[in-house]
C-alpha cells in the first residue's frame, strides 16, 4: 500500500510535468494560429503558421504520452483530445505568457523569441533526462525550436533596429510581457529538470540579441507567476471556451 502510494505520487508528478509541457505548447500554438490569414505579408503569414503547426505537433506528442501515463496508472480512457478539450482553466498548467493576447506583430514575435530561447534550453536538458519518452519528444522537437529561435531573434533585431516606430513598438511589447518571463525559472514540485539552472544561459542569449536590436533588458521587474500551478490570467478562460466549444457542446462525439 505504502509503495503503491509512492508510485502513484511520482507518476502523478510525471503526468503533471508532461501536461505542463503539452499545455504550454498548445496554448501558444492556439494563440499563434490566430495569425493564419491575418499576417503582415503572405510570406510571414506562412512562416508563423509553420511555427504554429510545430507547436501543435509538440502538444500532441506530449498529450499522447500524458494519456498513456494516466491510463496506465488509473485505468482511465484519456486521449490527446480529452486532455486538450475537456479540462478546465484551473487544470491547465501552461505558462501565463502563452495565453496572453497576441497584441501586434512586435508582441507576438517577442513572445516567440523569449519563449523559444527558453524552450530550446529546456529541451536540451530534457533530452538528457531519465524519462525516455520525454527525452525522445524533446530530441525531435528541438530541431523545430532552433528554427523558431532563429526566426524570432531575427525579427527582434529587425524591429528593434528598424524604424523609430518599430523600435517604440518593441519597447512597448517588452514592457507588456517581460514580467511573464520570470515564471520560466520558478521551480515546481513536478519539474523533472532544474529550471533555475537554465536562467543564466537564457539571459545571456536575450542580452546578446537585444543588444544587436538596440533594445535594453528591463531590470528589477516584478514577475507574474501561477500558470504552472493552474492560476491563470482571465484570458485563458475565454481562449478555452472558444477552443473547446464543439467537444463541450456535443459530448462523446467523434470528429
Amino acid at each position: 500500500m505504502d509503495s503503491n502510494q509512492q508510485i502513484s505520487k511520482s507518476t502523478n508528478l510525471q503526468i503533471n510535468q508532461t501536461l505542463h509541457l503539452a499545455d504550454t505548447a498548445l496554448i501558444l500554438g492556439q494563440r499563434n494560429s490566430d495569425w493564419c490569414a491575418h499576417g503582415p505579408i503572405l510570406e510571414q503569414d506562412i512562416a508563423i503558421t509553420n511555427i504554429t503547426l510545430d507547436l501543435i505537433g509538440q502538444a500532441r506528442n506530449f498529450y499522447q504520452y500524458a494519456a498513456t501515463l494516466i491510463n496506465n496508472a488509473e485505468n482511465k480512457n484519456e486521449t490527446e483530445d480529452s486532455l486538450a478539450y475537456l479540462r478546465n482553466e484551473r487544470e491547465f498548467k501552461n505558462f501565463l505568457i502563452c495565453e496572453l493576447p497576441n497584441g501586434n506583430w512586435a508582441q507576438t514575435i517577442l513572445r516567440q523569441f523569449l519563449f523559444s530561447v527558453y524552450q530550446e534550453l529546456l529541451f536540451e536538458k530534457l533530452i538528457a533526462c531519465n524519462d525516455q519518452q520525454l527525452s525522445a519528444i524533446a530530441a525531435k522537437s528541438i530541431k523545430e525550436t532552433k528554427y523558431h529561435v532563429k526566426w524570432s531573434s531575427e525579427w527582434v533585431i529587425r524591429l528593434g533596429d528598424g524604424t523609430e516606430e518599430s523600435k517604440t513598438k518593441m519597447e512597448q511589447a517588452i514592457d507588456e510581457i517581460w514580467m511573464y518571463t520570470g515564471e520560466f525559472f520558478i521551480a515546481n514540485d513536478y519539474d523533472i529538470i532544474d529550471v533555475t539552472s537554465i536562467k543564466s544561459k537564457w539571459l545571456e542569449k536575450i542580452n546578446e540579441i537585444f543588444e544587436e536590436a538596440t533594445l535594453s533588458v528591463p531590470e528589477n521587474t516584478f514577475m507574474q507567476s501561477g500558470g504552472k500551478n493552474g492560476i491563470h490570467t482571465e484570458y485563458l478562460g475565454f481562449l478555452l471556451s472558444e477552443m473547446q466549444v464543439l467537444q463541450r457542446t456535443y459530448p462523446g462525439a467523434n470528429w
Binding site: 498548445l26 494560429s33 493564419c36 490569414a37 503547426l53 486538450a84 478539450y85 464543439l246
Partner: peptide
C-alpha cells in the same frame, strides 16, 4: 480556433496555410 480535435486543427491550419 474551434477545430474539434488536435488532428483536425493541424490539418485545417496546414490547409489554410
Amino acid at each position: 480556433s474551434r477545430a474539434p480535435s488536435l488532428k483536425r486543427k493541424a490539418i485545417l491550419i496546414a490547409k489554410v496555410q
